[in-house]
Measured scan of single mutants.
Amino acid sequence: MAAGGDHGSPDSYRSPLASRYASPEMCFVFSDRYKFRTWRQLWLWLAEAEQTLGLPITDEQIQEMKSNLENIDFKMAAEEEKRLRHDVMAHVHTFGHCCPKAAGIIHLGATSCYVGDNTDLIILRNALDLLLPKLARVISRLADFAKERASLPTLGFTHFQPAQLTTVGKRCCLWIQDLCMDLQNLKRVRDDLRFRGVKGTTGTQASFLQLFEGDDHKVEQLDKMVTEKAGFKRAFIITGQTYTRKVDIEVLSVLASLGASVHKICTDIRLLANLKEMEEPFEKQQIGSSAMPYKRNPMRSERCCSLARHLMTLVMDPLQTASVQWFERTLDDSANRRICLAEAFLTADTILNTLQNISEGLVVYPKVIERRIRQELPFMATENIIMAMVKAGGSRQDCHEKIRVLSQQAASVVKQEGGDNDLIERIQVDAYFSPIHSQLDHLLDPSSFTGRASQQVQRFLEEEVYPLLKPYESVMKVKAELCL
């Protein structure tokens, strides 16, 4: 049975990233139509530049190519590739079939990587351009969430054990800070992308030097003109047959890092959902379990974690691919890159769409948070109580021993009897502590235990987050809708 299948058929496997999760716009960027249309555009740009620099290419040939950029006979191309065992030459023939007058000058002087690699770089750039505003929107939604809850005390956790208090907004800023680093890295790697350009079979530009009869300047002009037509500021000066596969490492490393950030955020949300302090959106008709109707599973956060793990592992592909590119190139890269580049971007696209949807509907339960604080705060307040007693004339050592005994009794009630923490009640009825009984409410005010959390939130948002989001103001209103 021949390899390949009808990918629109229910009898043929289709990647869930495309069929179930990723956005239509990201799927289109990695589609065959987008790819092969870009090949034709690159052939047109090459012909236009070659004509401008004096090669015998007519206006009629150029116009014929322009008129057929979208006229792609995919069936013919597939048949040609089956016959020739070469995808680029299959599309040269297919393009030439609908451009008979231009057929002889299509791909003039070029090698397969002229269309293959340059198209990949265009796709990487455009895919990054799709991700950047999506990530900015996630940051914006979380920034709104953090600002609104900047002063809401909550129990902090280290080692997932109760620690000092923080605020809900401050905790959210930990998430935002990681995503801001990801946004900066995505922008950097996007701006650092260079075009492969017009380089020939081993990167020496020998074929173009021959076409222009040894004119170095025209060869350099050709490279520059096509690079500018493709919208790049610069091209690699040095290439082998391909652009260095280190570029793929750079791009997928940034995406993998984004995956790590999203995994951490969504894990926190899942843990908070278990504590009943916070939940992701839950639709009115949504079913959490087929057997347990009360369940409210954090399905979206779980999906993000599941896909983020996949995204983090994909960076190993370009690392290994770059390491086995012998001399000017081997074909070890080809099949692998067809999979890992598309999957990385479709996965990143999915987790950003999902995280935006989550961040637009996060639900906080202040009463649950308050109750958990009441359970733990008495123990945390013991040092403040000791200091207040010393100020009232008591002995630190005597007070410490009193607190120690009462704390152990209260802990026994919590752990052995399943009761509430009654340390404060014990202190309130103990005559030894009568000098500070009137101060206990103040000493137990949760806001006095959150330090500068709310001020940190305000400063972080104003100095770091809002300036970073400013270039994306025009796209901030787009909502994230999930079908599944």
Rank of each mutant, 00 (worst) to 15 (best):
Cys99Met: 05
Lys75Leu: 10
Leu377Glu: 02
Ala90Asp: 00
Asp422His: 11
Ala388Tyr: 06
Arg234Pro: 04
Ser207Val: 07
Ile436Gln: 02
His97Phe: 15
Ser290Asn: 01
Leu469Trp: 06
Phe236Pro: 01
Glu81Phe: 00
Thr94Trp: 07
Arg196Met: 15
Gln455Ala: 12
Ala230Val: 06
Asp117Val: 01
Arg37Asp: 08
Ala410Leu: 05
His263Cys: 14
Ile105Leu: 11
Arg426Trp: 08
Val364Gln: 04
Val414Asp: 02
Arg245Val: 01
Leu17Ser: 13
Asn274Trp: 08
Gly259His: 06
Leu174Glu: 09
Gln286Phe: 00
Lys264Cys: 06
Gln409Ala: 13
Ala22Gln: 09
Asp223Ile: 00
Arg85Gly: 01
Asp215Gln: 15
Ile427Leu: 14
Lys66Val: 09
Thr202Ala: 11
Glu279Val: 06
Phe212Trp: 11
Ser334Val: 01
Ala77Glu: 08
Asp420Pro: 04
Thr321Gly: 08
Lys147Glu: 12
Gln161Gly: 01
Pro100Asp: 11
Glu401Tyr: 08
Asn357Ser: 15
Asn384Met: 13
Lys199Gly: 03
Phe30Gln: 09
Val262Ile: 10
Ala322Val: 15
Asn274Pro: 05
Phe208Val: 06
Met26His: 02
Lys170Ala: 04
His86Pro: 00
Phe30Met: 14
Ser395Lys: 09
Lys134Ile: 08
Ser31Lys: 06
Ala431Asn: 14
Pro467Ala: 11
Asp120Asn: 08
Pro10Thr: 15
Phe36Lys: 12
Ala163Thr: 02
Ser257Glu: 09
Gly104Tyr: 10
Leu362Met: 13
Gly288Arg: 01
Tyr114Asn: 01
Leu468Ser: 15
Glu328Ile: 04
Lys246Trp: 04
Asp182Cys: 00
Glu360Ile: 06
Leu131His: 11
Gln161Trp: 00
Gly214Pro: 06
Ile369Trp: 03
Ser407Glu: 03
Lys415Asp: 05
Ala103Glu: 09
Ala381Trp: 04
Val115Ser: 07
Tyr294Ser: 01
Thr204Lys: 00
Leu155Arg: 01
Phe195Leu: 10
Phe36Glu: 10
Arg338Trp: 01
Ser438Val: 11
Asp333Pro: 03
Arg296Cys: 09
Leu423Phe: 15
Leu443Arg: 04
Thr52His: 14
Phe208Ser: 04
Ala90Lys: 03
Asp317Ser: 10
Ile238Phe: 02
Thr242Leu: 07
Glu80Val: 09
Lys187Asp: 12
Gln375His: 07
Pro293Asn: 01
Thr321Leu: 11
Lys477His: 09
Gly109Ala: 07
Gly203Thr: 03
Asp11Tyr: 10
Val168Asn: 03
Thr347Pro: 12
Thr321Ala: 02
Thr450Pro: 04
Asp441Thr: 09
Arg300Met: 12
Gln456His: 08
Pro100Cys: 06
Ile339Thr: 15
Val364His: 05
His97Leu: 15
Gln51Ile: 08
Tyr34Cys: 11
Val168Tyr: 06
His86Gln: 07
Ser434Gly: 13
Gly109Gln: 00
Ser301Ala: 08
Thr354Pro: 05
Ala90Glu: 01
Cys180Arg: 05
Leu406Ser: 06
Arg404Phe: 08
Asp422Asn: 09
Asp11Gly: 09
Leu377Cys: 04
Thr244Val: 04
Met380Leu: 09
Gln416Asp: 15
Glu481Arg: 15
Asp87Phe: 00
Leu69His: 09
Tyr365Arg: 13
Met26Cys: 06
Asp223Gly: 08
Gly200Ile: 00
His7Ser: 13
Val168Gln: 05
Arg40Trp: 01
Arg374Pro: 03
Pro378Thr: 07
Ser395Leu: 07
Phe236Thr: 07
Leu444Glu: 03
Asp32Val: 13
Pro133Ile: 14
Ile237Cys: 10
Lys477Glu: 14
Glu280Arg: 00
Gly231His: 10
Gln320Arg: 03
Ser12Trp: 10
Gln221Gly: 08
Ser407Cys: 11
Asn336Met: 08
Leu186Pro: 02
Met387Gln: 14
Lys402Trp: 01
Lys82Tyr: 09
Phe232Ala: 01
Gln51Ser: 11
Val168Leu: 09
Ile373Trp: 02
Pro293Leu: 02
Val198Pro: 08
Arg296Val: 13
Asn384Trp: 05
Pro133Met: 13
Met225Arg: 11
Gln458Asn: 11
Val315Thr: 10
Arg396Cys: 04
Asp192Arg: 09
Val262Thr: 14
Asp441Ile: 08
Trp45Gln: 13
Ile123Val: 14
Glu425Leu: 10
His400Phe: 03
Ile385His: 04
Pro467His: 05
Ser395Val: 03
Cys99Asp: 00
Leu121Pro: 00
Leu152Lys: 06
Ser448Gln: 15
Asp182Phe: 01
Glu401Phe: 04
Ala103Phe: 09
Arg371Gln: 04
Ile385Arg: 01
Ala431Glu: 15
Phe379Arg: 04
Thr94Phe: 07
Lys101His: 11
Glu383His: 02
His97Gln: 13
Ala322Ser: 09
Gln397Asn: 11
Pro56Gly: 11
Ala143Gly: 14
Thr267Ala: 11
Thr244Ser: 14
Gly109Arg: 00
Met278Gln: 04
Lys246Ile: 01
Ile123Thr: 14
Gln325Val: 14
Lys218Met: 11
Lys233Glu: 10
Phe212Ile: 07
Glu383Arg: 02
Gly104Asp: 10
Cys304Arg: 01
Thr119Glu: 08
Val88Asn: 06
Arg309Asp: 03
Glu60Ala: 11
Asn274Gln: 09
Met76Leu: 11
Tyr466Phe: 13
Phe379Ile: 05
Phe449Met: 04
His400Ile: 05
Ala150Val: 08
Ile237Asp: 04
Gln210Asp: 12
Ser323His: 04
Ala344Ser: 10
Leu46Thr: 00
Ser334Arg: 04
Ala47Phe: 01
Gln177Lys: 04
Arg20Tyr: 00
Asp120Thr: 07
His7Arg: 14
Met312Lys: 05
Ile373Ala: 08
Leu209Ser: 11
Val138Asp: 10
Arg452His: 07
Arg37Val: 09
Arg309Asn: 08
Tyr294Arg: 01
Ile424Leu: 14
Leu468His: 07
Ile72Leu: 12
Thr313Arg: 04
Thr52Asn: 11
Tyr243Phe: 15
Ile139Phe: 03
Cys340Ile: 10
Ile238Trp: 01
Ala136Leu: 14
Glu417Leu: 12
